[in-house]
Amino acid sequence: MIRLDSLGVRLVDRRRGDRRWVLRDITIAVPRGCIYGLIGPGAAGKSVLLKTLAGLLPVEEGLAEIDGVNVGEAAALELEVLRRRIGMAFQNNALFDHLTVSENIAFPLRRLFTPTDDEVREKVAERLASVTLPGYEERLPPGLSGGQKKRVAFARATITQPPLLLLDEPAAGLDPVTSQRLFDLVKREVKASGATCILVSSDLDRLLPICDSVGVLVHGSMLFDGTVEDAKRSSDERVYQFVHGLPDGPL
């Protein structure tokens, strides 16, 4: 269960040297087992929202709560415990260039838990098979294609079977077939494990069918929060325009 209550995040704008609101007054609730699609134009603050939930950015005002733990005020140890339950795939993949694919995927498992080597090997092989990259264990990330990196990043995010999955553009730059497979995989695994998933993607055609609810973030404000059907029928012109991908409109 994720609860955001009038969350505000302010970050330093390095070019201008002052601090600027990136998120303002975000209030949403994502129940357990829900796939929540987060959409919106570029630079709306989607990645910032995910990173704030993972405790990577400071909360300026309001509340960000995961299963009753306040992320903004969690102590270091609390945060570490919380992060064992979070899997995250980053927009830029964030694969460690100097580690092999299998070491990359095993990294969260080894850091946050104490598995045996056999367990690690088994789980890594299973993850690689699930993203259709079997046999890639010893490759290095710089030698992979963009789509392969995305899939390795997804495998790393899910290796610990986290109850909360944060996926930032997991399918950007993938071909339509691989992309569809990845979304299907997300849906299948999230539904099977009962995890909660917040999914950022601009591929609305593939995203919306697997979402239980959807949020539209524009310029740091949540314009819409509700079911996909409601979003498609929204009376807010901006939401309507974005969800339907219309070129003309207020955006």
Binding site: A54, R83, M88, F90, N93, L95, F96, F107, L112
Partner: peptide, 12 residues
């Protein structure tokens, strides 16, 4: 800039 440092922090 490729978020690897964020990924490190996420893994404690």
């Amino acid at each position: 800039v490729t978020e690897q440092v964020d990924a490190l922090r996420l893994c404690a």
